[in-house]
Design a protein around this nucleic acid. Sequence first.
DNA 1: TACTCCTAAATTGTCAACAATCTACAATTC
DNA 2: GAATTGTAGATTGTTGACAATTTAGGAGTA
Lengths: 243, 243
Amino acid sequence: MTFQALESQSTAELLAEQIRDAILVGKLHPGDRLIEQELSESFKTSRGPIREAIRILATEGLVEHRKNRGAIVSAPNFDDVLEVYAMRMSMGSIAVTHASQLSLESELDLGKVTKKLEAMRTAVGGNANRMISLDLDFQSALIALGALPRITEMFEQTAVDIGVFVRFLGIKYDDSDHKALISRHEKLLKAIKVGNASQAIEIWNGHIQTSVREFMKPFSEVEVNELFERPLMNNLFEMENVR
Amino acid sequence: MTFQALESQSTAELLAEQIRDAILVGKLHPGDRLIEQELSESFKTSRGPIREAIRILATEGLVEHRKNRGAIVSAPNFDDVLEVYAMRMSMGSIAVTHASQLSLESELDLGKVTKKLEAMRTAVGGNANRMISLDLDFQSALIALGALPRITEMFEQTAVDIGVFVRFLGIKYDDSDHKALISRHEKLLKAIKVGNASQAIEIWNGHIQTSVREFMKPFSEVEVNELFERPLMNNLFEMENVR
DNA sequence: TACTCCTAAATTGTCAACAATCTACAATTC
DNA sequence: GAATTGTAGATTGTTGACAATTTAGGAGTA
C-alpha cells in the first residue's frame, strides 16, 4: 500500500490563496492597496509570509507591485480578455494535438479529466458562475493531458485571469447552453482518445470562440461592435479556418 | 519635457540577476543547492532579499524550490526545448499578426527593434553565443511590438529558457549563416510595417524552424532521429503549412 | 493662487535572532 | 547484514525591531 505524499502548502501559498479569493469574491477591488502591516494583523502572522504571498500574486498579475510603494489590486481591461483567449486558443491547440499523439502510444491518465466532466454534468442547471469555474477546471485538466509543463502552467495562470474578468467585467455566461457545452467536451475527449488531432483542434477552437461570444453577451451592441473592431478579435474568429 | 522614471531595481532583483548569470555562465550547475545562508554571506546581505531572489528564479523555472528543503538549480531536457520553441512559434505568430494589424492604424515604436537589429549587424562574424543572445534580444523587442503584455512576458521568460539550453545542452549555433539570419529579420520587420500579416507569420515560423535545426546540429544522427520521433517536433515542422 | 520647501506619518525594505523542519548518519534491533 | 529508530547538525520558516523611502499636507514665498 502506498500513500500520496500530502505536500502541505506553505504559509505564504495559503495566504496568497486567501487574498486571491478575496479579490475574486469582490472583497478587494481594483486599485485597493495591500498593506503588509494590515494584512499581517488580520491574518495573525508576521510580515514575512505576507510579503511572499504578495510576490506570488504579483507574478500572477493579480496585483501590481511598485518598489517602496507597496502593491495594489490591478484592474483588467478588454484587451486583456482578448489576449488571454487568443493565448488559450493557440496554446490549447498545441496541447490537445500533443495529447492526441501521445494517446496513440500510451494510455493517457484520463481519470482527473473525466472526474471534472462528471462534476460539470451534475452542475447542469445550477449556478452559472459555478459552471464557469468547473469548466475552467475541466479545461486545465484536459490541457494537462498534453504533458507540456509550461503550457499547463500557463492555463492555470489564465484561468485566474478569467476569474478576474468574470468578477470585474461583469461576465455572466448566464444563458449559455450547458448541455451543449458538455457534449462538446465529450467529443473533444473522444477525439483525443482515438488520436484524431485535427478534430480535437477544431472542437477546441470552437469552444474558445463560443466562450468569447458568451463573454460578450452582457454588453451592448455598441460595445460589442467596438470589440469586433480590435485586430485580436478578428484573429480569434479567423483561426477557425486554420489547419 | 518629461523623463522616464528610472525605476531602480530592488536588491532582490539585483541578486536574482547575479544568480541567474551565475547559472547561465556555468558557475552553478543543475543540481547545485542554493543555500540562503551561504549566498547571504557571499553577497553581504541578509537572508530576506536572498529568499526573494530565489523565489523570483523559481517562478522563472531556473531553480526548483522544495518546501523546507531549499532550492536547487534545475536541469533542462529536450522536451523542454521543443515545448519552448513550439510556444514561441505559436505565440510569436499571434504577436507579429497583431503588430502588422496595428501598424496599419498607428505608427509603431520601431526604435528599439531597429537598434537591436543594428547590434546584430555589427556582431556578424564574431562570437556565436553573443549572436544568439542578440538574436533573442531582437526577437523580444519584435514581439513587444504586438503590444500584448502576457505574450511579451512569455517571450522574456522563454528567452531565459533558451539561455539555459545553450548552456547545459551544448547548443552552439556555430556555423549558422548570420547574414541570412539578419536579412530574414529585415524582411520580417518590413512585412510588419506594411501590414502584411501572413508574410510576417511565414517568415516568423521559418525563423523558428531554422533555430530548431541549428540547435540540433551538435547532436549525432541517432540523437536527431530520436528527436524527430517526438510528436512536438512534427508539429513544429508541419506548422509551416498552416495559414 | 500657485509654487516650493519642509516635516511627520505611513509604509516598505532589511536585518539578526529564534523556531520548526529536514537530512545524514550512528546506534539498535532483528 | 539489512532495516529501523533516534539524534545532532544543517537549513529553511517566522518573527519583531530598526532603517530607508515615500507620501501627504502645511508653512512660507512670490
